Computed example of a mutant assay.
Amino acid sequence: MARIGAIFNPYTHGPDEFRDAVLAAEREGVPELWIWEDCFRTSAFAAAAAALAWTERLRIGIGIAPMPLRNVAATAMEIATVERLFPGRLLPGVGHGVLPWMGQVGARAASPLTLMREYVPALQGLLAGEQVDTAGRYVTLESVRLDYPPESAPFVYAAAEGPKTLRLSGEVADGTVLDSGHTADEVRAAVAAVRGARAESGRAGRHDVVAYVVTAFGSDAEARAVADVGDKPDPERRAVWGEPAEVADRLRAFFDAGVDDAVLLPASRVDVREFAAGAGEVARLVGADGGD
């Protein structure tokens, strides 16, 4: 079934506005609020724990936390702690990180693909309560097991954009996070690469695809949405806008392309409460439509 989420953007809103955004999302029935950890702004796991403590139903997605910044055992401990405190409400994701930023902190990986190939399976194993022993190029663990793994391990998402990373995410991760600014046709190709690689790897079970979609509600919605896409060709095909019913209708192209979860990225700076109201209505309309 198709799902809807919204994004708290750390570029247009500071941490002092986060609580208002979280409470608005809960109040307006937004199923998921996604955050990310860009250097050098806000911590993903601290923000996720706070948001979950303030709410009862809202799920928090982390899309993403950079793998090079944390030892995989530390990431597993963060996720496991939050998951045990708030079962079933965390959607944790990891990614390469922006390479220049990783260089600034002395954590840039010469081969981000190798890092992901080692890191994600180790993280999944730890969250499953397994003892993990591995000696890779970037991930080395010797008899490491969490004392308090989650009762049920959450999906581990990986951010992916290029063809090699898309395929690798399909092979090793439980879900993939696709960045905004893509047409539905481009998303369809990405989904095919992810799911094709998963099938070739022999992994069973579903792979959850999350796509960020630039979204604008209210006055001048089209102009704001198109401007947010930037100078890419056919910008009107890379965003959605209008009243909630129009947004829900335009999102159908992304769901038809194979997306499981369309996460609405506010175009420009907006009132977080107004955006949550629009996103909540879109979620109700998509749910009522059946999402297929």
Rank of each mutant, 00 (worst) to 15 (best):
M1E: 02
A2S: 15
G5E: 11
F8V: 02
F8C: 00
P10L: 03
T12K: 04
G14E: 11
R19N: 01
D20Y: 09
P31Y: 10
P31R: 12
E32L: 07
L33Y: 06
L33C: 02
E37A: 04
F40Y: 15
F40I: 04
A46P: 02
A46C: 09
W54F: 05
T55K: 14
E56I: 09
R59Q: 09
I60M: 12
P66E: 03
M67G: 06
L69A: 03
R70Q: 08
A73M: 00
T75G: 01
A76V: 08
M77G: 02
A80Q: 06
R84H: 07
G88I: 01
G88D: 01
G97W: 06
P100A: 04
M102G: 00
G103A: 09
S111E: 09
P112S: 02
R117V: 00
R117K: 00
E118I: 02
P121D: 00
A122W: 06
G125M: 05
G125N: 05
L126I: 05
L126R: 06
Q131N: 00
V132M: 02
D133V: 05
D133I: 03
G136Q: 13
S143D: 10
S143A: 09
D147M: 12
P150F: 06
P150L: 07
P150Q: 03
P150Y: 03
P150V: 04
Y157N: 03
A158Y: 09
A158T: 01
A159H: 03
A160Q: 06
E161M: 14
E161W: 15
G162S: 13
L166E: 11
L166I: 13
L166W: 15
G170F: 15
A173M: 13
S180G: 04
H182I: 05
H182S: 07
A184S: 12
D185N: 07
E186A: 08
A190S: 15
V191L: 11
A193Q: 11
G196S: 13
A197V: 14
E200G: 08
S201Q: 13
S201A: 15
R203V: 11
A204W: 13
G205F: 15
D208Q: 12
V209F: 08
Y212Q: 05
Y212H: 08
V213E: 02
T215P: 10
A216M: 10
S219I: 00
S219P: 14
D220P: 00
D220E: 04
A221W: 03
A225P: 13
V226K: 06
G230Y: 12
K232H: 07
D234A: 07
P235T: 02
R238Q: 05
R238I: 01
A239C: 15
V240M: 02
G242F: 04
A245T: 05
A245L: 08
D249Q: 12
L251W: 03
R252H: 04
R252D: 01
F254T: 00
D256Q: 09
V259Y: 10
D260S: 11
D261C: 13
A262W: 03
A262H: 08
V263I: 07
P266W: 14
A267F: 13
A267M: 13
R273I: 01
F275L: 05
A277I: 01
G278A: 10
G280T: 08
E281R: 15
R284K: 14
A288Q: 13
A288V: 13
A288G: 15
D289C: 05
D289G: 14
G291P: 12
D292T: 12
